[in-house]
């Protein structure tokens, strides 16, 4: 460098005011401006509050049996009624909601993270990494997941529901990973990835900063669907006696139990089913909002509020 070089150096005094906001801050601001997303987030928060604080409002626990009230309609004593053996539906549904919220969200999150890491690494590094990872993905795909969970879960029952989350996640990420892998392969050829490589950015950093954000739209949509899917698989497995077992309950088991009585004793079915619908809807709203917030080119609300000013900079630029 010659003495007259004027490449800017870090000068705290000169650079204080317009510090660039990172993409996280920008996304957060965009998220906050999206009404659907906020609704989704608030509803989800309320559901958690209901599931974990709600049980303290009633004297009944989900295992208590009131022999004086069998199949009783909602009343002051049993707010959401009782089921056929006299258990309080309110207490049971809230306990089931706890389980389902955790299982659904955690399974979707784990599966998506696993899928994006494996898929992106396989697609980005290529070669032997790709071959080994793809082989592993294909292997898991041909395993009969239901059978394996059915065999394994009784042995792991003592460890509790968290193991169940792990099992559901392990068998739910492969297809997503394959899609992420192929998306990564095409992203890798894009010039901005090549630019980062030529700048000497570490490969894992490129994956985290360039590849994953650019597949995030797909990942989020996939994750929101996976939440509903996880709750459903849990229900299916529980029905066959492998998942959540009595006296423990989940929304899935409650719906399965109450579905016969949906027309005759609606409270035994509709409270659980309604909460499940609200839960899945809230997750979908949240996912949609998150996707829009992370994708700067989506939506018009931002451009409408702040019209572009192209001309002003060019006048200066054209010196």
């Amino acid at each position: 460098m010659t003495t007259t070089a004027t490449v800017p150096t870090a000068d705290p005094a000169a650079s204080a005011p317009p510090a660039a906001r990172g993409r996280g801050r920008v996304a957060l601001r965009r998220f906050a401006a999206n009404r659907n997303a906020l609704t989704g987030a608030v509803v989800l928060l309320l559901l958690f509050l209901l599931a974990f604080a709600g049980p303290y409002l009633t004297p009944w626990s989900h295992t208590d049996i009131d022999y004086s009230a069998l199949r009783e309609a909602p009343s002051a004593d049993h707010w959401w009624g009782t089921n056929r053996i006299g258990q309080d539906v309110y207490a049971q549904v809230l306990h089931g909601l706890q389980k389902s919220l955790l299982i659904g969200l955690l399974t979707a999150l784990t599966a998506t993270v696993l899928a994006s890491v494996v898929g992106a690494c396989a697609g980005y590094f290529g070669g032997w990494t790709d071959r080994i990872m793809t082989f592993f993905i294909d292997l898991l795909l041909v395993f009969p997941a239901f059978l394996i969970i059915a065999i394994v879960s009784p042995r792991l029952r003592e460890r509790g529901w968290i193991v169940f989350v792990g099992l559901l996640a392990v068998f739910g990420w492969m297809i997503t990973a394959r899609v992420v892998r192929s998306m990564t392969r095409s992203l890798k050829e894009r010039e901005f990835v090549r630019a980062a490589q030529l700048m000497g950015v570490h490969p894992l950093r490129i994956i985290a900063r360039h590849i994953l954000p650019n597949v995030s739209s797909f990942l989020i949509v996939d994750a929101t669907i996976a939440v509903g899917g996880a709750v459903m698989s849990e229900t299916g497995l529980s029905y066959f006696g492998f998942g959540v077992q009595p006296p423990d309950v989940s929304l899935g088991t409650l719906i399965a139990d109450g579905s016969d009585a949906a027309l005759t004793y609606p409270w035994m079915f509709f409270f659980a089913a309604g909460l499940l619908v609200v839960f899945v809807l809230a997750v979908n709203f949240l996912g949609d909002g998150l996707r829009d917030a992370l994708d700067p080119t989506s939506g018009h609300h931002r451009t409408r509020r702040r019209p572009r000013r192209k001309g002003t900079t060019h006048d200066r630029a054209a010196r």
Binding site: P8, T9, A10, D11, P12, A14, S15, P18, A19, A20, R21, G22, R23, V26, F192, A196, M199, G200, V201, H202, R205, R209, H210, P213, N214, S216, L294, D295, P296, T297
Partner: peptide, 30 residues
Amino acid sequence: DPRMPVGEIVAEPLRAQGHGRADAAGRIPR
């Protein structure tokens, strides 16, 4: 990268060469 704000795009080579976050951010305006 269409998903990155301009400030982060410009800072990327600085970060890759081991400059700190604050140092990189300080150079962007100029």
